[in-house]
Design a protein around this nucleic acid. Structure first.
Lengths: 233, 233
DNA sequence: GCAAAAGTGTTAGCTTTACACCCATGA
DNA sequence: TCATGGGTGTAAAGCTAACACTTTTGC
């Protein structure tokens, strides 16, 4: 996004909706959060906006998205997928910009390393302020995509570390879907899907039976993602 | 696509993959076909390519796609949805072009009205020649999207007229999915989905029991398409 | 009557959902 | 021993897939 500079011609920008799971500092509830950057010039000076910027002539779209994220938020997401191209003629008051929007998922530990200052802040995805441009619409669409992605198995991967308990995995699903899931049925479904592999380790320290640790199955993709598969590092 | 003309800066183009159901002139088999245009200049002069062209500063992306289709093929599709933005730095040998690709569905009667000459021709989607740019890849992706779209009920709408028999509807599904469907089960599924409404009319003239005619249910969308719903005229 | 497609019925097998119940640990 | 979440069992309900069977037309 950033501003265009070019009065004639169609400009190409990339923006990214970055999701992370975070605890609300007040309520303690876990939910989806995303980082926004404050615009430092017109149009929409002072408003919060998705991180992004113009695409350089020598770089591909996805690379441009990665570079921008690194520059503005210091994040290098493990999951990055194209969301949609927004290109109505009147979507920017200042010149003609087509924005290729990506969406990304980052783990909590990665997210906490993100640069945060007065111009970069995290917001709960379900409770955003009025953003610059059509960015509220874009975030709504990204949320919808995240929630309807059938291959939740893989989506959850991006939010978790190498190993995890079934409760942790279930919590990711519950948070994304905003509804509770039956632990017994969840276990069976995820196990029979082949998406995860059991390790021999368990986690001690809780005041209950120690849960087993699992790992995502790195074998051939279970889901048909089509010729264009999203990137997973 | 068309060629860029602009050596510096990122150009924005739109292209469209247009699908129609057609009978193969030799085998008689019904399948997916799409119109291609022959390139009349470099790069890829003489090769077949998806219809498309540069986006004008004053028009939105979808409008640009519609205008181009009308100009190059005289088609006005009833179903038009954005597919993907292709923007690798090296995808065009001649300047930097980002292509926003749409996919469209047209009915057989509309398709037959399409301008066809030595520079515009229909090809079977499963048996294409080597196309210009990365257009083979793009068509493969469009085919995958068409086949995995869950809401087949709505997809089929774009291929059929106002009223249709269940056999006709089933044939559309069978053609897209490339496998036979059980007539009995297909009837029950589609009826219980609420996607179609029975009319009082039947079709006489076949040497068998006259089938009832149906109509698509225009009531509120049954499928959650998200904030960005594809256009259906 | 016969061929052909329309349309109905039925059943086996699978998946989903709800919930009861036992297990292993820390305090 | 008790509270807590980990983990297993099970049965009802719903859905899918396969296929037998009846109906209604044109010839």
């Amino acid at each position: 996004m950033i501003d265009a500079g070019q009065v004639q011609g169609v400009g190409v920008a990339v923006s990214t909706v970055i999701f992370a799971l975070r605890q609300h500092p007040d309520t303690g509830a876990v939910g989806l959060w995303l980082p926004l950057v404050r615009r430092i010039r017109e149009p929409w000076q002072g408003r919060w906006a998705l991180p992004g910027g113009m695409v350089r002539v020598t770089e591909g779209l996805e690379l441009a998205a990665r570079r921008n994220l690194l520059e503005t938020t210091a994040l290098e997401p493990t999951y990055l997928e194209q969301l949609y191209a927004f290109g109505e003629a009147d979507r920017s008051p200042d010149g003609r910009i087509v924005s290729i929007v990506y969406w990304a998922l980052v783990r909590a530990d990665e997210a906490s390393r993100a640069a945060v200052d007065e111009n970069v802040q995290w917001f709960p995805a379900d409770d955003l302020p009025e953003l610059a441009f059509d960015h509220n619409l874009i975030v709504d669409y990204a949320l919808w995509r995240l929630r309807t992605k059938v291959e939740y198995g893989r989506i959850a991967h991006a939010f978790l570390g190498e190993t995890f308990t079934l409760s942790e995995l279930r919590e990711v699903h519950e948070t994304v879907l905003r509804r509770p899931l039956d632990p017994a049925n969840f276990r069976r479904q995820i196990e029979s899907s082949g998406a995860i592999v059991s390790t021999e380790e368990v986690v001690t320290g809780g005041r209950h039976r120690p849960p087993r640790l699992y790992r995502f199955n790195t074998a051939v993709d279970l889901v048909d993602n089509g010729p264009l598969t999203p990137v997973r590092l």
